[in-house]
């Protein structure tokens, strides 16, 4: 008796395809098979991305099994790893208006400045600076600028240091908190999509 014809399918994590692309098995999964029709299996069409699919299309393992079974009824499909994966539809990159960037920049700049003033008032920073000035020098000074100007520059330096921006190459190669946040945010969105979006197979 001949060995049964098997195919082992491992879904890829997340792929990006342009809109209107023909989704083939090889695009969304890696596979190992002893079938002589390996190339044909890889080229099997799963789906054609339509505008109605939105910008994320979920591929379910069952969809691949269905397609392969129809084309090769004698084929055993084995799933390894994840059962679903996401195709991210790469919309053509919109040209970002520099005006928008400037707008966001100004909002952050002014907001950040206002926030630090609110903070200083909230925690009575002026009184604390005056108190420190008096304790150290023995004199009163209602405007201890000798503390406050280095302090102000330090605030900016501390923020940049925290986001590890300018000195990244020098200090370390680890991701900065912002890059980590971006990554976690994307990951959360993917998980949400997998949990809430009906896989392509069931959407018909």
């Amino acid at each position: 008796m001949a060995d049964p014809v098997r195919v082992y399918v491992k879904l890829k994590g997340k792929v990006q395809l342009p809109p209107g692309a023909v989704v083939r098995v090889k695009d969304v999964a890696e596979l190992v098979t002893n079938s002589p029709a390996e190339t044909a299996i890889r080229e099997q069409v799963l789906h054609v991305l339509k505008p109605g699919d939105g910008n994320r299309y979920v591929v379910d393992m069952i969809q691949i099994i269905e397609t392969l079974q129809r084309a090769y009824p004698e084929l055993f499909v084995h799933n390894i790893g994840a059962e679903q994966m996401i195709i991210e539809v790469q919309l053509p990159k919109k040209k970002i208006s520099l005006l928008l960037v400037a707008f966001v920049w100004i909002v952050l700049f002014i907001g950040s400045g206002l926030a630090i003033m609110n903070f200083h008032t909230d925690v009575s920073m002026p009184e604390v600076h005056q108190r420190i000035y008096e304790l150290v020098t023995g004199k009163k000074n209602p405007h201890p600028l000798i503390i406050q100007i280095p302090y102000s520059l330090g605030v900016g330096a501390g923020m940049i240091l925290f986001f590890n921006h300018i000195f990244r190459k020098k200090f370390n190669e680890e991701p900065s908190p912002l890059e980590l946040e971006m990554f976690l945010y994307e990951q959360n969105v993917d998980e949400y999509v997998l949990a809430h979006e009906a896989p392509g197979a069931k959407k018909k």
Partner: peptide, 22 residues
């Protein structure tokens, strides 16, 4: 443009702080 926004935050803090004191 993310890095520019971090710069915006940091400089906003410096300017806001200096403005507050001076």
């Amino acid at each position: 443009y993310l890095h520019w926004f971090i710069i915006a935050l940091a400089f906003g803090k410096i300017v806001g702080s200096l403005f507050h004191w001076m």
